[in-house]
Protein backbone atom coordinates (compact mmCIF):
# COMPACT_ATOMS: atom_id res chain seq x y z
CA UNK A 1 0.00 0.00 0.00
CA UNK A 2 1.46 3.31 -1.02
CA UNK A 3 1.61 5.93 1.68
CA UNK A 4 -1.01 8.55 0.96
CA UNK A 5 0.12 12.12 1.39
CA UNK A 6 -2.57 14.14 3.09
CA UNK A 7 -2.39 17.93 2.80
CA UNK A 8 -1.48 18.19 6.46
CA UNK A 9 1.49 15.88 6.07
CA UNK A 10 2.59 17.72 2.92
CA UNK A 11 2.51 21.04 4.74
CA UNK A 12 4.44 19.59 7.66
CA UNK A 13 7.09 18.16 5.34
CA UNK A 14 7.49 21.43 3.52
CA UNK A 15 7.89 23.37 6.70
CA UNK A 16 10.48 21.02 8.18
CA UNK A 17 12.25 20.11 4.92
CA UNK A 18 15.92 19.32 5.44
CA UNK A 19 15.66 19.01 9.21
CA UNK A 20 15.87 15.80 11.12
CA UNK A 21 13.12 15.40 13.61
CA UNK A 22 13.85 13.69 16.90
CA UNK A 23 11.13 11.19 17.52
CA UNK A 24 11.12 9.17 20.70
CA UNK A 25 9.61 5.74 20.22
CA UNK A 26 9.05 3.22 23.02
CA UNK A 27 11.87 1.17 21.56
CA UNK A 28 14.32 4.07 21.72
CA UNK A 29 13.23 4.89 25.24
CA UNK A 30 13.82 1.28 26.25
CA UNK A 31 17.27 1.26 24.67
CA UNK A 32 18.11 4.48 26.51
CA UNK A 33 17.13 2.89 29.81
CA UNK A 34 18.93 -0.33 28.96
CA UNK A 35 22.17 1.52 28.23
CA UNK A 36 22.27 2.77 31.78
CA UNK A 37 21.80 -0.70 33.26
CA UNK A 38 25.28 -2.06 33.86
CA UNK A 39 24.19 -5.62 34.64
CA UNK A 40 22.23 -5.86 31.42
CA UNK A 41 25.13 -4.46 29.41
CA UNK A 42 27.48 -7.00 30.98
CA UNK A 43 25.05 -9.72 29.97
CA UNK A 44 24.89 -8.33 26.45
CA UNK A 45 28.69 -8.22 26.28
CA UNK A 46 29.01 -11.85 27.33
CA UNK A 47 26.39 -12.86 24.78
CA UNK A 48 28.21 -10.95 22.02
CA UNK A 49 31.46 -12.64 23.04
CA UNK A 50 29.78 -16.04 22.82
CA UNK A 51 28.30 -15.09 19.46
CA UNK A 52 31.75 -14.17 18.15
CA UNK A 53 33.07 -17.48 19.44
CA UNK A 54 30.20 -19.29 17.78
CA UNK A 55 30.54 -17.58 14.40
CA UNK A 56 34.34 -17.58 14.17
CA UNK A 57 34.91 -20.88 15.97
CA UNK A 58 36.95 -22.14 13.02
CA UNK A 59 39.46 -19.29 13.41
CA UNK A 60 39.49 -19.01 17.18
CA UNK A 61 39.81 -22.67 18.08
CA UNK A 62 43.41 -23.87 17.66
CA UNK A 63 42.34 -27.49 17.06
CA UNK A 64 39.39 -29.32 15.56
CA UNK A 65 36.82 -30.24 18.18
CA UNK A 66 37.07 -33.97 17.50
CA UNK A 67 40.84 -34.04 16.93
CA UNK A 68 42.44 -36.56 19.29
CA UNK A 69 46.10 -36.08 20.21
CA UNK A 70 46.81 -39.09 22.39
CA UNK A 71 50.24 -37.81 23.42
CA UNK A 72 48.56 -34.77 24.99
CA UNK A 73 45.79 -36.58 26.90
CA UNK A 74 44.95 -35.60 30.51
CA UNK A 75 46.80 -32.26 30.37
CA UNK A 76 45.89 -29.57 32.84
CA UNK A 77 45.52 -26.03 31.45
CA UNK A 78 48.78 -24.77 29.90
CA UNK A 79 49.98 -22.55 27.09
CA UNK A 80 49.35 -25.10 24.35
CA UNK A 81 45.97 -26.16 25.65
CA UNK A 82 44.33 -23.20 27.38
CA UNK A 83 41.62 -25.28 29.06
CA UNK A 84 43.66 -28.50 29.13
CA UNK A 85 42.76 -31.71 27.34
CA UNK A 86 40.42 -34.62 28.04
CA UNK A 87 41.03 -38.35 28.23
CA UNK A 88 41.22 -38.63 24.43
CA UNK A 89 43.64 -35.73 24.14
CA UNK A 90 41.03 -33.41 22.68
CA UNK A 91 41.65 -29.73 23.27
CA UNK A 92 38.97 -28.52 25.68
CA UNK A 93 39.29 -24.87 24.68
CA UNK A 94 38.48 -25.75 21.08
CA UNK A 95 35.61 -27.94 22.19
CA UNK A 96 34.17 -25.19 24.39
CA UNK A 97 34.48 -22.63 21.57
CA UNK A 98 32.72 -24.94 19.13
CA UNK A 99 30.22 -25.65 21.89
CA UNK A 100 29.14 -22.03 21.77
CA UNK A 101 28.12 -22.60 18.18
CA UNK A 102 25.98 -25.60 19.12
CA UNK A 103 24.43 -24.15 22.25
CA UNK A 104 23.55 -20.76 20.78
CA UNK A 105 22.26 -21.98 17.44
CA UNK A 106 20.31 -24.89 18.90
CA UNK A 107 18.97 -22.64 21.66
CA UNK A 108 17.84 -20.11 19.09
CA UNK A 109 16.23 -22.78 16.95
CA UNK A 110 14.31 -24.13 19.95
CA UNK A 111 13.11 -20.65 20.87
CA UNK A 112 12.01 -19.90 17.31
CA UNK A 113 10.26 -23.25 17.06
CA UNK A 114 8.42 -22.76 20.33
CA UNK A 115 7.37 -19.28 19.24
CA UNK A 116 6.06 -20.59 15.95
CA UNK A 117 4.08 -23.34 17.65
CA UNK A 118 3.26 -22.39 21.23
CA UNK A 119 3.49 -18.66 20.69
CA UNK A 120 1.14 -18.70 17.72
CA UNK A 121 -1.33 -20.95 19.52
CA UNK A 122 -1.26 -18.55 22.44
CA UNK A 123 -1.84 -15.58 20.15
CA UNK A 124 -4.77 -17.35 18.50
CA UNK A 125 -6.21 -18.33 21.88
CA UNK A 126 -5.90 -14.78 23.13
CA UNK A 127 -7.32 -13.19 20.02
CA UNK A 128 -10.29 -15.46 19.41
CA UNK A 129 -11.13 -16.17 23.04
CA UNK A 130 -14.13 -18.25 24.01
CA UNK A 131 -14.18 -21.86 22.91
CA UNK A 132 -10.97 -21.70 20.88
CA UNK A 133 -9.17 -20.23 23.86
CA UNK A 134 -10.53 -22.90 26.16
CA UNK A 135 -9.58 -25.71 23.81
CA UNK A 136 -6.02 -24.49 23.25
CA UNK A 137 -5.42 -23.75 26.90
CA UNK A 138 -6.72 -27.12 28.10
CA UNK A 139 -4.43 -28.71 25.53
CA UNK A 140 -1.52 -26.77 27.01
CA UNK A 141 -2.57 -27.72 30.55
CA UNK A 142 -2.13 -31.31 29.53
CA UNK A 143 1.48 -30.69 28.58
CA UNK A 144 2.05 -28.53 31.59
CA UNK A 145 0.89 -31.26 33.95
CA UNK A 146 4.17 -33.06 33.35
CA UNK A 147 7.21 -31.31 34.86
CA UNK A 148 9.16 -29.66 32.05
CA UNK A 149 12.44 -31.54 32.33
CA UNK A 150 10.58 -34.81 32.70
CA UNK A 151 8.57 -34.16 29.55
CA UNK A 152 11.66 -33.26 27.56
CA UNK A 153 13.44 -36.38 28.74
CA UNK A 154 10.49 -38.62 27.93
CA UNK A 155 10.30 -37.18 24.43
CA UNK A 156 14.01 -37.56 23.69
CA UNK A 157 13.85 -41.06 25.11
CA UNK A 158 11.06 -41.90 22.70
CA UNK A 159 12.55 -40.22 19.64
CA UNK A 160 16.18 -41.08 20.28
CA UNK A 161 19.28 -38.91 20.39
CA UNK A 162 20.00 -36.28 17.79
CA UNK A 163 19.63 -32.62 16.98
CA UNK A 164 16.09 -32.57 15.47
CA UNK A 165 14.84 -34.87 18.22
CA UNK A 166 16.22 -32.65 20.93
CA UNK A 167 14.79 -29.52 19.35
CA UNK A 168 11.40 -31.22 19.22
CA UNK A 169 11.64 -32.27 22.85
CA UNK A 170 12.60 -28.83 24.13
CA UNK A 171 10.08 -27.09 21.91
CA UNK A 172 7.21 -29.25 23.10
CA UNK A 173 8.15 -28.88 26.73
CA UNK A 174 8.50 -25.08 26.59
CA UNK A 175 5.41 -24.65 24.42
CA UNK A 176 2.85 -24.35 27.27
CA UNK A 177 4.69 -21.58 29.08
CA UNK A 178 5.28 -19.56 25.97
CA UNK A 179 1.71 -19.94 24.76
CA UNK A 180 0.39 -18.72 28.09
CA UNK A 181 2.71 -15.73 28.01
CA UNK A 182 1.83 -14.83 24.44
CA UNK A 183 -1.85 -15.19 25.21
CA UNK A 184 -1.48 -12.79 28.13
CA UNK A 185 0.43 -10.33 25.93
CA UNK A 186 -2.31 -10.37 23.32
CA UNK A 187 -5.07 -10.02 25.91
CA UNK A 188 -3.18 -7.01 27.15
CA UNK A 189 -3.42 -5.14 23.85
CA UNK A 190 -6.76 -6.63 22.77
CA UNK A 191 -8.84 -3.77 24.12
CA UNK A 192 -6.43 -0.98 23.26
CA UNK A 193 -7.83 1.98 21.37
CA UNK A 194 -5.78 1.42 18.24
CA UNK A 195 -7.13 -2.13 17.98
CA UNK A 196 -10.66 -0.80 18.32
CA UNK A 197 -10.07 1.84 15.68
CA UNK A 198 -8.40 -0.62 13.31
CA UNK A 199 -11.40 -2.86 13.71
CA UNK A 200 -13.66 0.09 13.02
CA UNK A 201 -11.98 0.77 9.66
CA UNK A 202 -12.36 -2.87 8.77
CA UNK A 203 -8.93 -4.39 9.26
CA UNK A 204 -9.06 -8.18 8.82
CA UNK A 205 -8.29 -10.50 11.71
CA UNK A 206 -4.92 -11.82 10.51
CA UNK A 207 -3.74 -8.39 9.48
CA UNK A 208 -4.87 -7.18 12.89
CA UNK A 209 -2.84 -9.88 14.61
CA UNK A 210 0.31 -9.55 12.55
CA UNK A 211 0.39 -5.84 11.86
CA UNK A 212 -1.06 -4.39 15.02
CA UNK A 213 -1.16 -6.75 17.96
CA UNK A 214 2.12 -8.67 17.67
CA UNK A 215 4.28 -5.61 16.86
CA UNK A 216 2.78 -3.86 19.84
CA UNK A 217 3.56 -6.69 22.22
CA UNK A 218 7.05 -7.17 20.83
CA UNK A 219 8.61 -5.72 23.99
CA UNK A 220 7.06 -8.38 26.18
CA UNK A 221 7.94 -11.09 23.69
CA UNK A 222 11.58 -10.02 23.46
CA UNK A 223 11.80 -10.44 27.22
CA UNK A 224 10.46 -14.00 26.89
CA UNK A 225 12.85 -14.86 24.08
CA UNK A 226 15.87 -13.77 26.06
CA UNK A 227 14.69 -15.47 29.23
CA UNK A 228 13.81 -18.59 27.30
CA UNK A 229 17.27 -18.76 25.70
CA UNK A 230 18.80 -19.16 29.16
CA UNK A 231 16.27 -21.79 30.18
CA UNK A 232 16.70 -23.67 26.89
CA UNK A 233 20.48 -23.78 27.14
CA UNK A 234 20.09 -25.04 30.69
CA UNK A 235 17.71 -27.78 29.63
CA UNK A 236 19.84 -28.76 26.65
CA UNK A 237 22.89 -29.14 28.86
CA UNK A 238 20.86 -31.14 31.39
CA UNK A 239 19.59 -33.51 28.73
CA UNK A 240 23.05 -34.02 27.27
CA UNK A 241 24.45 -34.53 30.73
CA UNK A 242 21.98 -37.35 31.32
CA UNK A 243 22.96 -38.82 27.96
CA UNK A 244 19.57 -38.34 26.29
CA UNK A 245 20.35 -35.31 24.16
CA UNK A 246 23.08 -35.33 21.56
CA UNK A 247 25.55 -37.99 20.60
CA UNK A 248 29.28 -37.74 21.23
CA UNK A 249 31.60 -36.34 19.94
CA UNK A 250 29.33 -33.30 19.49
CA UNK A 251 31.00 -30.51 21.45
CA UNK A 252 27.84 -29.50 23.30
CA UNK A 253 28.75 -28.10 26.72
CA UNK A 254 26.55 -30.50 28.66
CA UNK A 255 28.06 -33.40 26.75
CA UNK A 256 31.65 -32.23 27.33
CA UNK A 257 30.81 -32.02 31.01
CA UNK A 258 29.24 -35.44 30.94
CA UNK A 259 32.33 -36.88 29.23
CA UNK A 260 34.55 -35.34 31.89
CA UNK A 261 32.50 -36.24 34.96
CA UNK A 262 34.20 -39.60 35.36
CA UNK A 263 37.56 -37.90 35.80
CA UNK A 264 36.54 -34.91 37.79
CA UNK A 265 38.16 -35.85 41.08
CA UNK A 266 41.57 -36.18 39.47
CA UNK A 267 41.17 -33.68 36.64
CA UNK A 268 38.63 -31.06 37.73
CA UNK A 269 39.42 -28.89 34.70
CA UNK A 270 37.52 -31.32 32.45
CA UNK A 271 34.34 -30.37 34.29
CA UNK A 272 35.18 -26.85 35.35
CA UNK A 273 35.46 -25.17 31.94
CA UNK A 274 32.29 -26.49 30.31
CA UNK A 275 30.45 -25.71 33.58
CA UNK A 276 31.70 -22.14 33.48
CA UNK A 277 30.64 -21.76 29.85
CA UNK A 278 27.13 -23.00 30.68
CA UNK A 279 26.92 -20.90 33.82
CA UNK A 280 28.07 -17.66 32.21
CA UNK A 281 25.90 -18.03 29.14
CA UNK A 282 22.76 -18.66 31.17
CA UNK A 283 23.71 -15.87 33.56
CA UNK A 284 24.24 -13.48 30.63
CA UNK A 285 20.84 -14.25 29.15
CA UNK A 286 19.17 -13.86 32.55
CA UNK A 287 20.92 -10.54 33.18
CA UNK A 288 19.97 -9.20 29.77
CA UNK A 289 16.43 -10.49 30.21
CA UNK A 290 16.03 -8.74 33.56
CA UNK A 291 17.50 -5.56 32.11
CA UNK A 292 15.13 -5.67 29.17
CA UNK A 293 12.19 -6.20 31.49
CA UNK A 294 13.15 -3.13 33.49
CA UNK A 295 13.80 -1.16 30.33
CA UNK A 296 10.53 -1.99 28.61
CA UNK A 297 8.42 -1.65 31.70
CA UNK A 298 10.05 0.33 34.51
CA UNK A 299 7.02 -0.25 36.72
CA UNK A 300 7.87 -3.93 37.05
CA UNK A 301 11.12 -3.13 38.79
Amino acid sequence: MAKRMTPAIARFKKKHAGKTIQVSTPGKEAWRRLRRNRTALLGLAIILLMLIAAIFAGWIAPYEYQQQIYADAYQTPNARHLFGTDNFGRDLFSRCVYGARYSLSLGLMCVIASFLTGGMLGVIAGYFGGRVDNLIMRFMDMFQAIPQVMLAISITAALGNGIPQMITAITVSTMPTISKNCRAAILNVKNADYVESSRAIGVGRWRMIFRHMIPNSVGVMVIFVVGLMGATINMMASLSYLGVGLNPPTPEWGLILSDGKGFFTAYPHMVLFPSLMILFTILAFNMLGDGLRDAFDPRLK
Partner: peptide, 11 residues
Protein backbone atom coordinates in the same frame (compact mmCIF):
# COMPACT_ATOMS: atom_id res chain seq x y z
CA UNK B 1 21.06 -15.06 43.63
CA UNK B 2 21.40 -14.55 39.89
CA UNK B 3 24.44 -16.78 39.90
CA UNK B 4 22.57 -19.54 41.72
CA UNK B 5 19.56 -19.15 39.47
CA UNK B 6 21.76 -19.57 36.40
CA UNK B 7 23.57 -22.61 37.73
CA UNK B 8 22.16 -25.87 36.35
CA UNK B 9 21.44 -28.45 39.05
CA UNK B 10 24.07 -30.92 37.93
CA UNK B 11 26.81 -28.28 37.85
Amino acid sequence: SMLFAACPGFV
